[in-house]
């Protein structure tokens, strides 16, 4: 049953979730220096012993490690990631808001990636071993090799500084599309390249299948053979790449959001590190890991569901 598979997969998540929470929490303990001292140090260098002690108590830093972890874990389960050292705001809310902005950008980037990857991947496979295929494959390799921070600046120079088409950076209240185009394109490039390669090999694989020849033998036009018989089957494995791409997009968000001043989770992490807001770093990293894990979990389920044959294999 699909349900049994679902449950088994969900059970696998539990040890991983516990471990990643532990990893996120311990990060603070590998840090040299006492966060309370760092936070309470005034710009002139001195600090007030009483204020440091008060900070420790306020943030529970005076308790033993395992108690701190358990308290934090209990909170984390119900969405309480503690309070920012800097703004005293709840970490979870800040992270959630930032993540919503990252999500907006990522969805747009994913759409851009798919729009590029599907046609090029298919054409590359259909023109297998020709100059067109070689060019497509080289472009894909190029796409995964280009440093996104560099690409971002090169695009800003071209589209903002020289052509004045798009704003160089800014948030635009998170809704203005003109602010999203450049960062989303930069984010989407790497994913597009990975997806294109995947679609190409998947399409090549399917086009060599006997049922494609059967479909031709029925007198269907090549267009119908490709769209109805090949593309549908070729795109099923691509679902798994979308999971992989989420990782790509989240990774990219760190640099891209910082450069474009987009108030997303990548930007939040970098800012929090620079301001030693360890609580926020910890919370963001855990949040991103959980989201990433869950997305991959659902992607896997969708893959199983979309693929009747696998569904059958795993049932029996």
């Amino acid at each position: 049953m699909l349900k049994d598979y679902f449950i088994r997969r969900a059970l696998y998540l539990i040890p991983v979730l516990i471990f990643i929470s532990f990893m996120s929490f311990s990060l603070i303990y590998i840090a040299p220096g006492d966060p309370a001292e760092i936070m309470m140090t005034s710009p002139s260098g001195g600090y007030d012993e009483a204020a440091v002690e008060a900070f420790r108590i306020a943030h529970g830093l005076d308790q033993p490690f395992y108690i701190q972890y358990l308290n934090w874990f209990k909170g984390a389960v119900v969405g309480n990631f503690g309070y920012s050292y800097m703004s005293e705001q709840p970490v979870f809310e800040t992270v959630l808001n930032a993540f919503k902005n990252t999500l907006t950008l990522s969805v747009l980037a994913l759409v851009i990636a798919l729009v590029i990857a599907i046609p090029f991947g298919v054409v590359s496979a259909l023109k297998h071993n020709t100059v067109v295929d070689d060019a497509c494959r080289f472009c894909a390799l190029f796409g995964v090799s280009i440093p996104n921070f560099w690409q971002a600046y090169m695009m800003i120079i071209l589209f903002s500084v020289i052509l004045h088409w798009l704003p160089p950076s800014g948030f635009g209240h998170g809704t203005e599309i003109s602010y999203m185009i450049l960062p989303a394109t930069v984010l989407g490039t790497g994913s597009a390249a990975v997806m294109m390669r995947m679609i190409r090999s998947s399409m090549l694989d399917v086009m060599g299948k006997e049922y494609i020849q059967t479909a031709r033998g029925k007198g269907l036009s090549e267009k119908i053979v490709i769209i109805r018989h090949a593309l549908k089957n070729a795109l099923v494995p691509v679902i798994t790449v979308i999971g992989l791409s989420i990782g790509f997009l989240l990774n990219g968000s760190v640099v891209v959001e910082t450069i474009f001043g987009w108030s997303g989770i990548g930007n939040l992490v970098v800012d929090s590190i620079l301001s030693h807001d360890y609580m926020m770093v910890q919370g963001s990293v855990l949040f991103v890991a959980v989201i990433f894990l869950l997305i991959n979990f659902f992607v896997d389920l969708v893959y199983v569901w979309a693929n009747p044959e696998i569904r059958y294999d795993r049932n029996s």
Binding site: K209, E210, Y211, R228, H229
Partner: peptide
């Protein structure tokens, strides 16, 4: 098994 499209 090879000649029929598994997804249709």
């Amino acid at each position: 098994y090879l000649a029929m499209n598994p997804g249709i």
